[in-house]
């Protein structure tokens, strides 16, 4: 039983990272109807930036500065590459973000080099005990950080003028424009927020084992999370991210005992299996809005 609980706790920790990344995807999707496939590169860039800043500034300040830096990078990318494509088919823009991802990742890999970089987190693989269940300290840190970030984010959307503007623009762009909202700055802000979230997620994912060139693949696991929750639901992204994390962790713990024929490391691809199953039953995810079709 203890094994089960500690597996679920580890899943919640890892899942909260997927939740942050999924929020980035969903915020950009709600603002621009595009899935930003450059998020993996932004996440990797965030982790690398933090690993360079952690020396002079200390871990917490480095994470904040890293998030701001990547938010600016996201803003810059939106201004230069995505802006000329406003009004083009979403598929084209999505593929462009894929192009950004590939190009940006090569640049970031240049900063990683062939060895593993450490983000200088205070936890490493240290284990603690929570209600008698063994759990890695870094997983608790992930969960707490995510809880704080998400609370701030949801408060921002609910109580600030800018947040209201973003919700309005997501609801109906033209009406928002007519009310004097600058939709173009909403787009830019969406990219900035997603970049910041990705940087935080990247840093925490890299706690423990450190950053290598394969870290970006983790960001793609947020895709099953947003599909699970529905592309346009912020709450769905959080729920989806956490459940994907728990599923992955449970599969990692029990799959070799119960289904060894699925092969080693099946847990790594289990989110995609969950995604396929969910989509067959509910094509718009658990919380997504069903599109109304007009010819």
């Amino acid at each position: 039983m203890k094994e089960l609980f500690s597996s679920i706790l580890a899943g919640l920790g890892q899942g909260s990272m997927y939740a942050l990344l999924a929020l980035g995807f969903v915020i950009i999707y709600k603002a621009t109807q595009v899935i930003n496939l450059a998020l993996p590169a932004l996440m990797l860039a965030g982790a690398v930036l933090v690993s360079y800043l952690v020396g002079p500034f200390g871990f917490i300040l480095a994470v904040v500065l890293g998030a701001v830096g990547i938010a600016l990078l996201g803003l810059g990318l939106e201004r230069t590459v995505i802006r000329p494509m406003v009004g083009k088919p979403v598929f084209v823009v999505a593929i462009i973000t894929l192009g950004i991802d590939i190009a940006l990742r090569v640049v970031v890999n240049g900063f990683i080099g062939t060895d593993v970089r450490q983000v200088g987190d205070p936890w490493g693989f240290a284990r603690g005990s929570l209600f008698g269940v063994t759990v890695q300290e870094r997983h608790i840190a992930m969960f707490v950080t995510t809880a704080i970030v998400i609370t701030v984010l949801f408060a921002f959307f609910k109580y600030t003028r800018l947040g209201l503007a973003m919700r309005a623009a997501a609801f109906d762009q033209e009406t928002a424009l007519a009310q004097g909202i600058s939709v173009s700055s909403v787009f830019a802000l969406a990219w900035a927020i997603a970049g910041g979230l990705a940087a935080v997620a990247g840093t925490f994912v890299a706690t423990g084992a450190g950053i290598d060139q394969q870290l970006w693949i983790i960001a793609l696991k947020a895709l099953p999370a947003i599909i699970l929750g529905g592309l346009d639901s912020l709450g769905g992204a959080v729920v989806g991210g956490l459940s994907i994390g728990i599923v992955e962790s449970l599969v990692a713990t029990y799959q070799l005992d119960f289904a060894p024929w699925l092969g080693d490391n099946f847990s790594v691809v289990s989110p995609y299996v969950v995604m396929l199953l969910v989509l067959l039953v509910r094509p718009y995810g658990l919380f997504g809005t069903r599109e109304v079709e007009r010819v």
Binding site: V34, I35, V90, F91, A94, L220, L223, P224, I227, L231, G263, N265, F266, V268, V269, Y272, V273, M275, L276, L279, L280, P283, Y284, E291
Partner: peptide
């Protein structure tokens, strides 16, 4: 899947296919 899903949902699912296949 393609008949049930459209646009970017389909793109993501086919992306998942690549990862499953690789495994």
């Amino acid at each position: 899947l393609a008949t049930r899903l459209r646009g970017l949902y389909l793109a993501i699912v086919t992306l998942g296919l690549v990862f499953l296949g690789e495994h």
